[in-house]
Design a protein around this nucleic acid. Structure first.
Lengths: 354, 354
DNA sequence: CCGAGATGTCGAATCGATTCGATCGAATCG
DNA sequence: CGATTCGATCGAATCGATTCGACATCTCGG
């Protein structure tokens, strides 16, 4: 019962003493980076077992080695919301794949409030910034001061940040062209969050000017290259509920004022839009075309196939992990630009004759 | 560019020197746990800014303080699969809630292969064992040696482990009674993994005897208290695909040999079963009743409402977090037993007349 | 005007390991 | 057989902070 309290955790020094060797030799046994005779090794290991020694203290080891074996994964949402987005899960899949058998733990850090505080407090050897739709500059600054290599997924290009980027603008443009070719002229966009406060509402030029949400702006810009007049409303997150919320604003109006197509900046948002269309009895794609972004698996959440821009999500995660490993090895990480592909499903069709 | 390489990261000592104070005083400024005059404080902070000092090194601080500010979350599956289970997401929600504003990071550690190795290498102040369906003894032993308090969710009771437990056996029994009352006699069970290897296949007495999968065995035991002859097949994980896989074994047989009801040990498994029933044209609940476990939100994955045992998942996470905080504060954590409730949905009905 | 108490600052020990260079005996080689 | 090398071991410095006890200064009551 009170063993735990009474017996202090044994240290390497205690093990060395018990085995009758010096601490340095004992250390060699556990780290395996020096020549040790078999006899000595066994004596040390026996002593460790006798004392119930659990191996070198990770904290002390980290301090001395200058490595903690931990990769920080910095997310935008709350912990659980982060993992509710299949996009992030795919990224995680890729990261796990890319990290391979390196023994690195993932420390998940929600960047919800006061950026920097928590970021600066946790030990980590490198950081991956996940889905940087809002302003990441403060976080990056905090990490840079700590000399922590940063890999950012879809962030605005910055010094000392290895970018794993996506052709957001070009892809969105292709999506918009698809709609334009189908005759759509009245198109609305449901965007990802536009600022750190995740304000919900119409995207005005003023808001765009002060926004640092790279991905959001790029995707919107791509659409407006083709459809300059497309109105846009920002969601407060990439969730089905948010998509539905914005969709109600856009669709619950007299039929004449309704857009004939909605571009959602994520598949989850698109599902929300489809759900509301269904509620309101608006036929898709006869009366309304919907296009998403990401190309994640939607597990039977919708009937048919969502027209969307499929991005190589797992690949993205894998490349991020590889960039981290490169940075850890002292090699310069290579920035990457990935490409999305338009998948035409059953949610887009010719614009209804007006 | 090469600033990063050339200029070594400044230390507290450098800041102290620059400010003309001792290291101890500088430390006091950052940790805020001693009296420092305003003038001194400002001088130190100015020096820190001048040197671009990012604050005390987390690793060094952890070593000295004996606290790393990190909670280990030990999972059974791969990283991404863990978070694909809505059950675990709900737990995470609860953990986040229970941790509140304590500045604690969550280190996610998949306990896939060689238990203990990674576990022992990462710094953490406490560990939460998530969904312990398979054998956790080795992990617990490794953590205990390191004097890391362990909170286990639904694990077999062990010394020095704070258990957050669920009435698995009783709940399953109530589910089985519901089926029995409806006249079902030929009932099959799709179980969670039965062993660390996650072997898929029929659950034989021999396998049960060597299994340490607490949750799995309890839930199965509960069913067999009512329906002793229920056959059982173990899945290799709590996923829709696994549920479907086992369901095909059970349902793709001549109609006379088919069970009239299937008890799935998780909602995800149940969804897999429903999917296969649909594929094979078996009407639910007219020809087949299906019951799940967990009561998680299934986001339109099925038509109707799943009959299932709803457990207080968020509460479970919250209690686990509170137990962790208690342990960290030196207080003894209180073991908890939570209760599930049978929710009767549209997937169970009277047994078909044979 | 002196001693008690409060306040601010400092030096030194400490947390638990890793690692560099030195040492020493044994084996190898010419 | 002496010089050299190699393998095994050890001592001591180091990683970057925190914290305890000591010390100096200042305030205030008596």
């Amino acid at each position: 019962m009170d063993d735990q309290a009474s017996a202090p955790r044994p240290t390497l020094a205690a093990v060395a003493a018990q085995a009758g060797v010096s601490v340095s030799t004992a250390s060699l046994v556990f780290s395996g980076r020096g020549p040790v005779s078999d006899a000595t090794r066994e004596r040390v290991l026996a002593a460790a077992t006798a004392l119930d020694y659990a191996g070198p203290d990770p904290t002390a080891r980290s301090l001395r080695r200058g490595r903690s074996g931990v990769i920080g994964v910095v997310t935008e949402d709350s912990l659980a919301d982060t993992f509710r987005d299949p996009m992030n899960l795919a990224l995680l899949d890729g990261i796990g794949e890319g990290l391979g058998d390196e023994r690195l733990g993932l420390l998940v850090i929600p960047r919800v409030s006061d950026p920097g505080t928590e970021l600066a407090a946790a030990p980590m050897d490198a950081a991956i910034l996940l889905g940087c739709s809002t302003d990441v500059a403060p976080s990056v600054a905090a990490l840079r001061r700590r000399r922590v290599p940063v890999v950012a997924i879809e962030a605005v290009p910055m010094d000392d940040v290895i970018a794993i980027d996506l052709d957001n603008r070009d892809a969105s443009r292709r999506g918009a062209e698809h709609l334009a070719q189908l005759g759509h002229r009245r198109v609305a966009v449901v965007t990802l969050p536009l600022d750190a406060a995740r304000t919900r509402g119409e995207v005005t030029p003023a808001r765009m000017a002060t926004s640092a949400a790279h991905t959001t702006l790029e995707r919107l810009g791509g659409v407006r290259e083709v459809l300059p007049d497309a109105v846009a409303f920002s969601a407060s997150g990439s969730t089905v509920d948010e998509g539905a919320r914005i969709a109600r604003l856009l669709l619950d109006v007299p039929a004449g004022e309704r857009p004939t197509a909605i571009v959602a900046q994520s598949d989850l948002l698109a599902v929300g839009v489809l759900r509301v269309a269904d509620e309101l009895g608006i036929a898709v794609p006869a009366e309304l075309s919907v296009i998403g972004f990401d190309g994640v698996r939607l597990e039977g959440a919708i009937d048919g196939v969502l027209t969307t821009l499929v991005q190589p999500a797992i690949e993205k995660g894998r490349l991020a992990a590889e960039a981290v490993l490169a940075a850890l090895a002292g090699r310069a990480g290579t920035p990457v630009l990935l490409h999305s592909e338009l998948r035409i499903g059953t949610t887009t069709g010719p614009a209804p004759a007006s």
